[in-house]
Amino acid sequence: MLRPEIVESVLKKSILVPEDQATLFELFVGFEILDALETEGFKIQILRLLGKSTVKPLPFASLRRGQEEIDLYWQRSLWVVNRPERSGFLARVQSDNQVQNPRPFRPDFLLVGQNPPRLTLVEAKLTEKEKTRETVGIANALAYLQDAAEVLARYPKPHALVVAWGATGTPAMSEVVVSDQHSLAAATQSLLGPKVKEVSARRSAS
């Protein structure tokens, strides 16, 4: 069960009431990532929560720090956001086997950055049995990485973040960063890489 203070934290920041706890946890993860990015000096330019466009998918939030830009997409496929590259390994397997009504993978969040380029797929896990949440989350992340390997090869690591309720892992500089619900600030720092140390040094000197 989600603790009341976490539910309250998300609902205070949002304009909708999710229908299930898994969706609520996803939103909590999204807002915690935004908070962590703001702590690192990013400013939120756009926060729309919900948004549809017939031209292109709209980000959940857009942030900026100097020349750096980050868009955070909620429940969007990489192959919709990352046009014109519209398919990966999964689509090829589905096509080879003539799978009916094929659907692409859709991570809970996509973090897409410019100056420098970043691409991170985020998986939030709440619903599985307690002892398997982070393992299932990592397995899902590895499937995303396999699917998008050709695209991700052009971006620096980490390439995925798994946030699992009650996870035992500690966020580290790895291709897949693993975090519980309390360590998202450190996990987000891992996604930013060396830039974090530079920003912290400038803050200490000021």
Results as ranks from 00 to 15, higher is better:
Gly88Asn: 07
Val112Gly: 11
Gly137Gln: 04
Trp79Val: 06
Ser183Glu: 14
Leu49Trp: 15
Pro57Leu: 02
Ser62Phe: 04
Thr168Cys: 09
Leu145Cys: 06
Glu123Ile: 07
His182Asn: 14
Ser53Tyr: 08
Asp71Ser: 10
Ser9Thr: 05
Leu119Gln: 06
Val10Phe: 10
Leu34Gln: 00
Leu191Glu: 08
Val17Pro: 12
Ala124Lys: 01
Asp180Ala: 05
Gln75Tyr: 12
Val7Asn: 00
Arg3Leu: 12
Leu72Pro: 04
Leu110Pro: 02
Phe89Ala: 11
Phe60Trp: 08
Ile70His: 02
Glu19Cys: 04
Val199Trp: 13
Ala61Tyr: 03
Leu49Ala: 14
Leu121Val: 09
Gln45Ile: 12
Arg106Val: 12
Asp20Phe: 02
Tyr73Glu: 01
Ser204Lys: 15
Arg64Tyr: 01
Leu47Asn: 05
Pro18Glu: 06
Gly193Thr: 02
Arg76Asn: 06
Leu27Ile: 04
Asn97Thr: 13
Lys13Gly: 04
Thr54Trp: 15
Gly66Thr: 00
Glu5Tyr: 11
Tyr73Thr: 01
Phe42Met: 00
Leu192Trp: 05
Asp96His: 13
Ser179His: 15
Leu50Lys: 14
Pro4Ile: 03
Gly113Ala: 10
Ala187Asn: 02
Ala61Ile: 06
Ser174Cys: 11
Lys13Leu: 11
Ala185Asn: 14
Met173Arg: 15
Leu192Phe: 07
Ser190Lys: 14
Leu111Cys: 13
Pro59Ser: 01
Lys56Gly: 10
Val136His: 11
Ile15Trp: 15
Asn82Ser: 11
Arg83Glu: 09
Val136Phe: 10
Gly41Val: 07
Asp20Cys: 09
Lys129Tyr: 09
Leu110Asp: 10
Arg83Gln: 13
Asn82Val: 03
Gly41Glu: 09
Arg92Leu: 12
Ser206Arg: 12
Tyr144Trp: 02
Glu69Ala: 10
Leu2Thr: 02
Pro59Gly: 00
Arg3Asp: 14
Gly193Phe: 03
Ala36Ile: 07
Asn140Gln: 14
Asp180Gly: 09
Gly51Ala: 06
Gly169Ile: 06
Pro18Met: 04
Gln98Val: 12
Asn101Asp: 15
Glu8Cys: 01
His159Arg: 10
Leu24Phe: 08
Lys129Pro: 02
Ser62Ile: 05
Ala186Trp: 11
Leu37Ser: 08
Glu68Arg: 13
Leu111Phe: 13
Arg65Glu: 12
Tyr144Leu: 00
Ala185Ser: 14
